[in-house]
């Protein structure tokens, strides 16, 4: 079993199975993290949500940063448009949410998407759960785009883009409006 792998790598520990040395502790988390990301990548390659394509070559080279291509769903305001998303995973994933932003030349014009690509979506920060996945985040973003009734930027776009941190997870978001 992969979780035991670390034990064989560290045969000299006094209490092999659950010794709390930092080394083993870090390894345990890393093994689980790698296993989880590989599993997610495989599933996204094999069974992607409609209109979603992951750059698998890039992701396999560096498991902690993925680029995902997303098409606007048919019969929505974003039909025919193509977007790029970047997913960054910290060593604490899946306990920490992934950092997700739109990148590239086409940032969707949407009341919850800032022109710098930051997305205001509660599951990306405080409502994140380790049982969610890249797949479920993609589905939420598709649904967020699809339910859009008017293409416009958030009302505080200019202010936010000037002042925000590079990392959207460092923003203390206010999720005040779920209707758009």
């Amino acid at each position: 079993m992969p979780t035991y792998l670390t034990i064989y790598l560290l045969p000299t520990l006094a209490e092999p199975l659950f010794h709390c040395s930092t080394k083993l502790y870090v390894n345990q988390l890393r093994v689980l993290l790698t296993k989880r990301l590989q599993k997610e990548l495989l599933s996204l390659i094999k069974d992607p949500p409609p209109g979603v394509l992951v750059d698998s070559e890039k992701a396999e080279q560096n498991l902690s940063i993925w680029t995902i291509y997303m098409k606007g769903a048919d019969e929505t305001l974003f039909a025919g448009e193509e977007f790029q998303l970047q997913f960054k995973f910290s060593p604490k994933y899946p306990f920490d949410s992934p950092e997700v932003t739109f990148i590239g030349p086409n940032i969707p014009v949407h009341p919850h998407v800032y022109s710098n690509g930051h997305i205001c979506l509660s599951i990306l920060t405080e409502d994140w759960s380790p049982a969610l996945s890249v797949q479920s985040v993609c589905l939420s973003i598709i649904s967020m785009l699809s339910s859009c009734k008017e293409k416009k930027r958030p009302s505080d776009n200019a202010f936010y883009v000037k002042t925000c941190s590079k990392n959207p997870k460092k923003t203390k978001w206010w999720y005040h409006d779920d209707t758009v």
Binding site: E15, L17, F18, H19, C20, S129, A131
Partner: peptide, 25 residues
Amino acid sequence: NAHDELHAAFNNQGYSNYVVVYLRL
């Protein structure tokens, strides 16, 4: 030493937090 092993597992986030998540689900 099963108790010691259990105690160590619960103090290792790689096990402990996975148990917490499962109970939350």
